[in-house]
């Protein structure tokens, strides 16, 4: 019975401990993207990997009950629109597309670099949700439990 959804008890127990740490590491990489190596793209991929970790360990149904495919696509769209609206904000407030219109702040501090932080957050949402959606679409193409919900149109 237990084998049907996900992996063994050991993997599930370890996953409970590690998945939040991986998630936090992704957020750290993203928020410090303007100070240290990393940035929105790498942070987004790490977040997608943490969700993939969850899906692989607990099975598709248990993981996608928490975060549905509609939520994933909503997050991706929010990221894209957010990034584009930052670019439009540059056009609106200072007349140049993609201009860094926010105050720069003190260098080497967390709250600096104007719009770059928000660009990182937007890219982070977009990349994380997009790659996770690609994983869910590609990797569960021939899962055995897909047939049960085959009649339900997505």
């Amino acid at each position: 019975m237990r084998q049907e959804s996900g992996m063994t008890l050991i993997v599930k127990r370890i996953t409970r401990i590690t998945v939040s740490l991986i998630f936090l590491f992704g957020v750290y990489i993203m928020l410090h993207g303007h100070l240290t190596p990393g940035g929105g793209f790498a942070g987004g991929v790490i977040i997608a990997l943490s969700f993939i970790h969850l899906v692989l360990a607990f099975g598709k149904k248990a993981a996608l009950k928490r975060i549905s495919e509609t939520t994933i696509s909503a997050f991706e769209s929010i990221g894209g629109v957010f990034f584009w609206s930052i670019a439009l904000g540059g056009l609106l407030f200072s007349g140049v597309y993609f201009l860094n219109f926010l105050p720069k702040g003190e260098a080497f501090s967390l709250f600096s670099a104007g719009t770059i932080v928000f660009c990182n957050i937007a890219i982070f949402l977009k990349v994380g949700a997009g790659l996770f959606a690609i994983f869910v679409a590609l990797a569960f193409l021939r899962m055995p439990d897909e047939k049960e919900e085959g009649g339900k149109a997505a």
Binding site: G40, W84, A87, Y97, S112, I123
Partner: peptide, 25 residues
């Protein structure tokens, strides 16, 4: 110009932000 200590972020998100928009697309 950007106040970002990581110059790679400064280039891809500020100087070359338009390229990054294309990449997101």
């Amino acid at each position: 110009k950007t106040g970002a200590a990581n110059i790679v972020s400064a280039v891809i998100l500020d100087f070359r932000g338009y390229d990054t928009l294309g990449e997101a697309t």
